[in-house]
């Protein structure tokens, strides 16, 4: 199993001056797994990414990536990692092809696969255009393409779909699925539940620098979530909305009564969401600023 572990984090602690950003967190990620790292702003997600990529050094604890210690073997590890950040940090005055070629060469790779990569990201006709002329979605796709330019074993994605329209989001989800299918391990930080539901095999909830939960999303929803039924009832003043927990015995009786009385206008069931599970576990909202 050890060779299956691609990321091993143990007792990781990091402080920004007097603020403890991470408090002895430990987790592992297996080969081919898609791990969602969830938490509100300030939970410690970006600090974890910075530590995983060797941008900062932990106060305590250890990180091993692909069986090598980070940050001691940073350069070798970075050669096997693809990174994608929320901000499209690309050269606006260069073309899309040039942007990818620079990073391919810095990783010691040839540029022969770049046209294919650009085509996969729907940028085949844009390769010779300056990036400054790209739309936001195109820039973000280029950043994700750049993360794959070194054929990485691990993809680290920090809020990769933030601010994108649904079409671009869906396109990126498909591309991440393809990577998962070829065995790439994906570590993704996000507040976006659509990202998690579309991609993640496992999620870690982070709150105020501590891990609050670490499990498969469905198991978390079963254990901590509450499925609901929303009923719109006709009454003398108009329509009244009522929400009932699905797992309570009284719910069925009450709905049966309303149906007999002919008061039910609409009825919908709603499964527990990870967002609600997060609130139930941490007492905070994921989009909390």
């Amino acid at each position: 199993m050890a060779d299956q572990r691609v990321i091993e984090v143990s007792d990781l602690t990091f402080s920004y001056r007097k603020t403890e950003a991470l408090k002895k967190i430990s987790f592992t990620v297996d080969r081919g797994e898609v791990l969602g790292f969830l938490g509100p702003n300030g939970a410690g997600k970006s600090t974890t990414v910075k530590l995983l990529t060797g941008q900062i050094v932990p106060d305590k604890g250890s990180i091993r990536i692909l069986d090598r210690p980070m940050p001691r073997e940073r350069s070798r590890i970075l050669n096997k990692i693809g990174l994608c950040f929320e901000a499209p940090n690309i050269y606006p005055k260069l073309t899309g092809f040039e942007n990818l070629a620079i990073f391919a060469k810095l990783h010691g790779q040839s540029t022969s696969h770049i046209p294919r990569l650009m085509s996969r990201f729907g940028l085949e006709n844009k390769g010779n255009q300056r990036v400054a002329s790209y739309s936001k979605g195109m820039k973000q796709r280029l950043v994700v393409a750049r993360a794959l330019v070194n054929r990485p074993e691990i993809l680290i994605l920090d809020e990769p779909t933030q601010g994108l329209d649904p079409t671009n989001k869906e396109m990126l989800h498909e591309l991440f699925h393809e990577q998962q299918e070829v065995g790439t391990t994906i570590f993704i930080t996000t507040h976006d539940m659509l990202d998690v539901e579309a991609m993640c095999d496992r999620v870690i909830f982070l709150n105020e620098g501590s891990i609050m939960a670490d499990d498969d999303p469905k198991a978390l929803m079963r254990r901590h979530g509450k499925a609901l039924i929303h009923v719109s009832l006709k009454n003398t003043d108009g329509v009244e909305a009522v929400t009932l927990p699905i797992d309570e015995a009284k719910t069925a009786d009450r709905i049966a009564d309303w149906l007999r009385e002919g008061r039910v206008e609409t009825i919908h069931s709603q499964e527990a969401t990870l967002g609600q599970v997060f609130i139930n576990i941490t007492g905070r909202r994921l989009d909390h600023e």
Partner: peptide
């Protein structure tokens, strides 16, 4: 300004 220095520093270049 473009954020590309951070991107470069996440490649093996020193």
């Amino acid at each position: 300004e473009a954020g590309t220095m951070a991107a470069l520093r996440l490649t093996p270049i020193t």
